[in-house]
Design a protein around this nucleic acid. Sequence first.
DNA 1: TCAGAGTGCGCC
DNA 2: AAACGGCGCACGCTGA
Length: 599
Amino acid sequence: MSYKKHSIKMNEDGQLSFVEISQTLSDLPLLKTPEWVLVEDEKSLYKIAEEISSCKVIGVDIETTGLDPHLDKVRLLQIASSNNFVYIIDMYKVNDLVALKDVFISNKPVKIMHNAIFEQKFLKYQYQLDFGTIYDTMLANKLIYNGLQKRNSLQEVIKDELGLFLDKSLQASMWKSKNLDNMQLDYAAKDAAVLITLREKQIKKIQKYKLTEVAKIEFECTKATAEMEYNGMAVDIASLETEKVKFEQLLKELQKDLIKYFGKININSHQQVAKALASKGIYPESTSEKSLKKYIDKHSEIKVFIDYKSLNKIYSSTLESLNKNIHPKTKRVHSSYNQFGAASGRMSCYDPNLQNVPRGEIRRIFKAPEGRKLIIADYSQIELRIIAEISKDETLIKAFNQNKDIHNITASVVTKKDMNDLTKDDRQKAKAVNFGLVYGMGTRGLVRYASNSFNVDMSMPEAEDIYHEFFKNYKGIKAWHEKVKNNSDDIPFIETLSGRKRFYQDEKRFYSELFNTPVQGTGADILKLALIYLFNRFNNSSTKLVNSVHDEIIIECNETSAKEVREIVVKEMIRAGKKYIKSIPIVVDATLSDTWAGK
DNA sequence: TCAGAGTGCGCC
DNA sequence: AAACGGCGCACGCTGA
């Protein structure tokens, strides 16, 4: 097996450097096989529980017959009490893990796992094991190298951190068979034992970069993320089907019209559409909606095309992928989350992505079952509040403390109008200004952004004036920008209020990125903290975390207790926000509803 | 034939 | 010198 050309290494002092990798993986020294014993009865588990309860840490790993906790079975549970001794529990022989309940829920020993979400989904929901303190070597690796090109599989991490070769060729092998051979058991044992050594190596780096606090958040949050994945969101299958049919008919009609205009081309091909447009004397910069918009008045078919594209987007991206991902057993959608998926620290979501479902009626498809309700709770203007906190901008802080509308304030400042004379258009413009300028947008960008995202026309001189007035008013933001800019060349990383880092090696440091990452990332820190609080509050009750979208948490609960639950959700989310936002209030809006579309 | 880069667009 | 950021997904196209 040959390997990629270079990788990033961190030496003992925590310095980062690029290293050429010329050797093949299998040239590396082999990770040695620990001692192990095979456990095949429940009674032994009590002895094991007592044994490991005196450990500071244990490595925990499972082998399963597949990846789906609703369908697949745990084949083996490996518990490493040291880096050289592993209990391998045969889950085809052992029926329950009651004996391990106390030692797992305890904070000691710390349970080390590589991707703890996976283990929890099986062990908590199939064997009712709750976890105390967790250490996740995969999340740790992401925290230590965030921003740099790194892979996070156990094999890669072992290679980079320990310089050892972990053979994963048995990873997907025959775990269904009744009897396992010693090769398989060796493999299973190695995976658990190495976690202990790996953690020791990682801990030094976590301390060096002061990542302890954010690591704690990430590790704890795996409990909530596992729950969201396991629970999934309820879908109203009938209305999904209705919507699908509706879209199919609509798309077919539009398609017919477009063929009439363009000729027999593939409408989904940008190239072919561009060519067809050119033959009619239309030369847009691209076939994107924004470049086509200006031709709508003269060519009504362009409007049809834009409508088609946007409907087709919803159809294929939302309706079809939703349909594809309805779970055969639970009839819900169980998305996967990449808990630390974005460089900022945000989660990402896939299969299906529930973080880009269009707003509005289409969200009615997500409907709580009979007798249940959804609570849709989101932080109000969290990013602007974080900006106020980080920049210490006095105008912003004062406005939030007086519960004023920030967009209106900006509108009044840049239009030089009295607050009472503002039009809807002024406020739209101010939104573009606020979101654009705080993250380092220039005047030219502002004109484009205002037009594209907020449908507001702005001339260049007007944009220049607005830029000037904006920073005259928000002096703290200006100063914060200057400070970040002045240090931008030297800094090895930018960080959030929890200490989460985004590292830079040879990468270009974009100002916009340096402004945005601490803000977006602190938002993620707060959201994850809120998920932790809510998990702890509702764990093992009928109230379930089912989704979260950057500044929003969705909970499903019994109708009978919905109002009380809502109060708790708001309170806990505010408590999480207050951990990092000290100078202004945190506001959470929570809607009680049957569907995700809200009231 | 198929992986991967590119385009475009939904969300926050 | 100038730059708003962060995702995932569908699609057609490219090149090995």
